[in-house]
């Protein structure tokens, strides 16, 4: 290891530093790029099935490929509370305030975004 470090040139070290900086910056940006919004959008097998306000606490149970799945919205966050799938990766993800929860076996995608009017900043009328 020591030899490996010794054998590097300054250029190598600069390159390494640049890579570290760019990956850290990337992390910062990617966290920022997660979808945000005021609604919870539930897609089942590619079809948008529910658009629910993130501000209203509730539990909904949906029928999916492997039986029923329960989604909970509370305090402006959402989680997959219960799902009939093998590995329960979706449940292990816990509460999210932005981004998505995907339950691949059930074909469920829960995204935090802004419903149908997502490209609108306001409505007149």
């Amino acid at each position: 290891m020591r030899n490996a470090i010794k054998s590097t040139t300054i250029a190598d070290r600069v390159l390494l530093a640049l890579l570290v900086i760019s990956s850290l910056t990337g992390m910062f940006y990617s966290r920022d790029a997660l979808s945000k919004g005021e609604d919870v959008l539930v897609e089942i097998n590619g079809k948008l099935t529910y658009t629910l306000p993130l501000s209203q606490d509730r539990e909904i149970t949906v029928n999916a490929s492997h039986g029923q799945a329960t989604i909970e919205i509370k305090d402006g966050r959402v989680k997959m509370k219960q799902a009939e799938c093998g590995n329960h990766i979706c449940m292990k993800q816990g509460w999210i305030k932005s981004g998505s929860i995907v339950c691949l076996p059930n074909g469920i995608v829960i995204t935090i975004g802004n419903g149908r009017k997502k490209d609108l900043d306001a409505v007149t009328g």
Partner: peptide, 13 residues
């Protein structure tokens, strides 16, 4: 800024 204009004869959401 993107503003929606309401449909005066809305039939569904």
């Amino acid at each position: 800024w993107n503003v929606g204009i309401k449909n005066p004869r809305q039939t569904s959401d």
